[in-house]
Design a binder for these strands. Structure first.
Lengths: 130, 130
DNA sequence: TTTGGAAAACCAAATGCATCGTATTTACTC
DNA sequence: GAGTAAATACGATGCATTTGGTTTTCCAAA
């Protein structure tokens, strides 16, 4: 009885979800129109992706006129957390600190970004409920 | 002429690379023996994965006796950075700070882990070459 | 030195999923 | 009812994962 829910989005699925998260909800056309110029997908391709997302329960749809309007069933935040957990588990021995260690070692990080990161951590530590 | 270097490991490839990184180098048998009990892959499956990794230039091999010995061509650190960059780009608007924000918002993070994270960031900020 | 066997390499493919599209049908609008 | 835009059905292609069957390679014993 292994309920091995995949839970993670594929590359193209994520591409579509990002647009849905940005606009809240939308039709196939809405999403397609938001993709970059050079990404010239056929209408049916977009429809297929959204249908698959619905099947995997990442989105739901409702009928409006002749179109379906799709909306995410999970918040982007939630999915971000899930992804980080997955990456941490697979590549960082399930140790979030070592993930951050690698991140802040990145030479291309700006000082500004570093400052922001410290501020975030500090704020969180202060707000810790005792 | 798009030279679309994939650059990222698949799930099983990563599983194998993790073992190679742990032991430095090894044969098909060496890697297979390190996988968890319940992961009962056929020998040929392991050999195939390593051959693909070699083809993608994530490992090289040398002959020793009748076996091949495989070793990584890139450090785990390097690949960690690459993965984080990819995740940050695809899911965090290319803003590492928001990635950390999500990470430290995770309720399951221990206070200890949070402290470690802050220490890392502080150390990095102090060591900034002026 | 030959040979027999074990371990590994090599080859070729089956399965399943992700991506993308064409052809066809359906459903509004005027 | 004609025209248009969306939905649905269906399938081609390619990659990831896994394996079985066959050949090669090396070692050790007769």
């Amino acid at each position: 009885m292994k309920k091995k829910k995949s839970a993670l989005l594929t590359e193209v699925e994520l591409e579509f979800m990002n647009e849905l998260w940005a606009i809240g909800e939308g039709t196939v056309r809405d999403v397609l129109d938001r993709l970059p110029q050079e990404r010239a997908l056929a209408y049916t391709s977009g429809a297929t992706i959204l249908r698959i997302l619905e099947q995997k329960e990442f989105v739901t749809s409702r009928k409006a006129g002749k179109s379906h309007i799709y909306s995410p069933t999970l918040a982007k935040d939630t999915y971000q957390t899930r992804s980080l957990k997955d990456l941490s588990m697979k590549l960082f021995d399930d140790t979030p600190a070592s993930l951050v260690a690698r991140l802040v070692d990145d030479d291309t990080l700006t000082e500004e970004a570093l400052g922001q990161i410290r501020a975030l951590v500090d704020r969180r530590l202060k707000n810790e409920s005792g």
